[in-house]
Nucleic acid binder design. Structure first.
Lengths: 157, 157
DNA sequence: GTTGAAACCTCAGATCC
DNA sequence: GGATCTGAGGTTTCAAC
């Protein structure tokens, strides 16, 4: 799928403010409402816009702790990798699971109510998981930057 | 700020679908539209709902590569830490920057158009940055789970 | 103090050009 | 892509619990 300048503007604006009304959006990109809405629907149906989400403050909701866990497995056979992914997918506090190259097999981003409950997740769900060789964790002191999504270069192409 | 069951339902639903209409939302939580809207506005003004964002597909937009970079600095003086944070904040491909405890000082999530442009970011912006002792990078092979936000337990309290 | 009912006004979505 | 129209939704006001 190819995007023109207006498509890119639409994506950049909706990434910034996902609840912007269609008429506002249309005005900002220099269209009238109907063609603007058609473009948005086309982007949604093409899977370029995957959804819209409220960005909640983790601390207010009782999850002030964010931890990164670097996990190495004993076996890197595909079956064992997917088994581990399915295992962590069922843990709600695990928000991200990325498979990496190199000596670390997976990096997980985990949120927790406090250090005690984090230790509990670690010792009851992560360390004893099948095939896990080692788990190294690092507490997040502070987060200087956290932008979901990707850079949208409006002037590209 | 304290939340009742309805507040939690609202947050869970808006985290799932940020463009849900207010009347839909009201119906799902068992209210009529006006009090539901007031609750949403209150949550926004309290900073619990920080915003709404379209979730864009990185690969479609020309960013198929995600890399984690573990950075250690030579000095951990507060002045040097914030200087590094400000440095990476200006790099659009750096989407996240978390300060960690332990031997690694920062973990960065970086998106890139291809390996070549990633290497360019690394060698021109990251490695030569002031005070950087070491940068270890890991390519993301695949992402099994990526849920922005936090678990919202509707039945809590 | 929070909900709900009614009013008004704006927007979303469909149709046609 | 734009113009027009209709039904639906957003938002404010105010009364009631």
């Amino acid at each position: 799928m190819a995007f023109d300048r207006i498509d890119r503007q639409i994506m950049a604006l909706l990434q910034q403010d996902g609840r912007m009304t269609n008429v506002d959006l249309a005005e900002r990109v220099g269209l009238t409402a109907p063609p603007c809405l058609r473009r948005v629907r086309a982007l949604e149906e093409a899977g370029v816009i995957r959804g819209y989400h409220a960005d909640l403050d983790a601390a207010s909701l009782g999850y002030p702790i964010t931890v990164f866990a670097m996990v190495s497995l004993r076996s890197q056979a595909e079956h064992d990798l997917t088994a581990f992914e399915q295992h962590v997918a069922a843990i709600p506090q695990v928000r991200e699971c990325h498979m990496l190259n190199g000596e670390i097999d997976f990096i997980l981003k985990i949120v927790a109510e406090d250090l005690k409950s984090f230790q509990e997740i670690l010792t009851t769900h992560l360390t004893p998981a099948p095939n896990v060789a080692s788990v190294k964790t690092s507490l997040t002191i502070r987060t200087a930057k956290s932008i979901s999504g990707v850079p949208v270069d409006v002037d590209a192409r």
